[in-house]
Amino acid sequence: MTSIKLQVDQKLSLRDPTSTELGQSIVEHAILLLDELGFEAFTFRKLADRIGTTEPSIYRYFKNKQRLLLYLASWYWSWMEYRIVLATANVDRAEERLRLALVELTRPPVANASLLQIDEVALYRVVVAEASKAYLHRDVDAENREGLFRGYKRLCRAVADIVIEVNPTYRYPLSLVSTMLESARMQLYFAEHLPSLTEVNRAAADLPTTEFLTELVFRAIMREP
């Protein structure tokens, strides 16, 4: 089976982790350990113990654990963009392409053997629970000036461009898409941990989330100003 290798901004790591076996192992087991422990309890020492290496070896690849989380989130955003491109290829109607994009952005993934060293299902859980910590912190402005959020911005821009195709006069395409992306994660998080805040059902969270956000998006862009 052909493997998929996505490009992640080189500024997110001190050394490209895909270039060595150790780097690939760091990424692979960081996802699993973050999924197991959560961001706050996760440390490079624990990761080093898990993969049988030293903390300094991990610091040769990533400045700190926040930068590692941002690397993983950026990989996921690039993966989302890739999935949307595949799902909407050769679809002429903008409305249908937007619906397909919303499905890709809101449905949980399944295991994919074409993704080397990436447990997509575990990464999805990490993104739902932890991704906002990659940019909700005091250094976000400096990191933004470095261009570290290009993957997220590119994903939002790609979907916003479809929104504009559907309704060229709609005034808030980026605001709508970024709100929808954040809400997709939060609805799933609420269904898992704070169920009284959502009608989304934990047992089948993807379908009502997709239905809710699709309705929200189309009502917003189709209503008269």
Rank of each mutant, 00 (worst) to 15 (best):
M1R: 05
K5T: 15
L6W: 08
L6R: 07
V8Q: 00
D16Q: 13
T18S: 15
T18E: 13
E21G: 04
L22A: 08
G23S: 10
I26L: 03
E28M: 11
E28L: 08
L32W: 02
L33Y: 06
D35E: 11
G38N: 04
F39W: 03
T43H: 09
R50W: 02
T53A: 03
T54N: 14
P56H: 07
I58Y: 05
R60A: 13
R60I: 05
Y61D: 08
Y61L: 13
K65E: 00
L69E: 04
L69C: 09
Y71N: 04
L72Q: 04
L72S: 03
L72I: 10
W75C: 01
Y76T: 01
W77L: 03
E81P: 02
V85R: 13
A87L: 11
D92S: 14
A94H: 13
E95F: 10
E96N: 09
L105M: 04
R107G: 00
A111C: 01
N112S: 12
N112E: 15
N112T: 11
L116K: 01
D119S: 05
E120G: 04
V126F: 00
E130C: 06
A134R: 04
L136R: 15
H137R: 14
D139Q: 12
V140G: 03
A142S: 12
N144G: 14
G147I: 06
G147N: 08
R150P: 01
K153D: 07
R154D: 14
I164F: 04
E165R: 07
V166P: 05
P168C: 06
P168M: 05
R171L: 15
Y172S: 12
Y172E: 11
S175W: 01
V177Q: 02
E192N: 11
E192L: 13
E192D: 13
V200Q: 00
A204S: 06
A205Y: 00
A205W: 00
L207G: 04
P208W: 03
P208M: 04
T209G: 05
E211F: 11
L213K: 02
V217I: 14
V217W: 06
F218Y: 14
F218Q: 13
R219N: 14
A220H: 06
